[in-house]
């Protein structure tokens, strides 16, 4: 019987490498295109613009608030999903992924309808928040450094809520992976030693989840930085009021200032690259544990 020769591996490796290199080249080309279209002086000019400076400041403020809120909600949600079985768990889990798969504009539209059309106790949610914020402002001292806005929609809270809705879903996924990698038996040992659930969580689980928490926070921050669709619909893009970097790019393009738009984009790319480097560093630390 004639022995059949093993077919060559070259087609396999060729396809794998070609696909990988082509996608990599596309990303590098995009970055090169942006870098070649702008210069340090244009970035400097863009930053000299008062409205862009205020957009940068508002972006960083809202992104940090979103990241903190995402962690506050993602850690308990992911913990429950990882450690407990309950009826309709799969449905609950799937619903939590909806913000990841929904078109961003639809999220913005949904938030707009939720706050302005749905009535609870004969008032819209927006009206409830208006009342709440005005009551809180009445309590605050006159010269207090912070005042609540007069509502949510088309105000700064709308930016945070739009960013949070999407970012938190990513944080939940990250935290879920983190908790799945922590042996639940360690908590059980802590329980037999005299801890209650809370003490076991804070002393045994959280120290092990710290890299995951940092990764989730940074990813939420980065996701919030790039959010555009829901912010445009729910918060608008009013110069100096609800303008964040992603909407600045849109506004600059709409008035024909492509150089300004690219300069702002370059700032966002720099922030994104920095975030990716930090996440990779944290992930490599994590894997050595």
């Amino acid at each position: 019987m004639k022995k059949k020769k093993v077919p060559s591996d070259i087609p396999f490796y060729s396809f794998m490498w070609c696909a990988g290199i082509m996608y990599f080249a596309l990303i590098v080309a995009l970055l090169y295109a942006d870098a070649s279209y702008t210069s340090f002086s244009e970035i400097k000019n863009a930053l000299a613009d008062k409205s862009i400076r205020s957009s940068v400041w508002l972006t960083f403020q809202t992104c940090w608030i979103t990241a903190v809120l995402s962690i506050l909600f993602a850690v308990p949600t992911a913990y429950i999903l990882t450690r407990y079985n309950f009826p309709l768990k799969r449905l609950f889990d799937s619903i939590l992924d909806i913000p990841i798969v929904l078109p961003p504009l639809v999220i913005g539209l949904s938030l707009l309808i939720l706050f302005n059309q749905i009535q609870i106790f004969d008032q819209t949610i927006e009206a409830h928040f208006k009342n709440l914020f005005s009551s809180l402002n009445a309590i605050l001292p006159d010269r207090f450094f912070f005042k609540f806005p007069s509502g949510v929609t088309y105000k700064v809270p709308a930016i945070i809520l739009a960013q949070f809705t999407v970012s938190c879903a990513f944080a939940v996924r990250t935290m879920r992976n983190t908790f799945e990698n922590i042996d639940a038996r360690q908590e059980e040992v802590a329980l037999t030693m005299g801890c209650n659930r809370s003490k076991a969580f804070w002393t045994v689980v959280i120290p092990q989840a710290r890299f995951g928490i940092m990764t989730a926070a940074i990813l939420s921050w980065a996701r919030a930085l790039g959010e555009f669709g829901p912010i445009l619909v729910f918060a608008g893009a009013t110069r100096g009021k609800t303008e964040v970097l992603s909407t600045t790019v849109f506004l600059e393009i709409s008035i024909g200032n492509l150089e300004g738009a690219v300069a702002v984009s370059f700032l966002m790319i720099s922030a994104a690259v920095l975030v990716l480097v930090i996440v990779r560093m944290l992930s490599s630390n994590n894997s050595s544990w």
Binding site: D183, R185, Q186, E188, V189, A190, L191, T192, M193, G194, C195, N196, V204, P207, Q208, W289
Partner: peptide, 20 residues
């Protein structure tokens, strides 16, 4: 009673030490 209120020392399989 809850596990901590039983005052039992538990040694699980493979030790399961607290990694941090």
């Amino acid at each position: 009673l809850r596990p901590g209120d039983r005052f039992i020392g538990f040694v699980p399989q493979d030790g399961v030490l607290f990694s941090t």
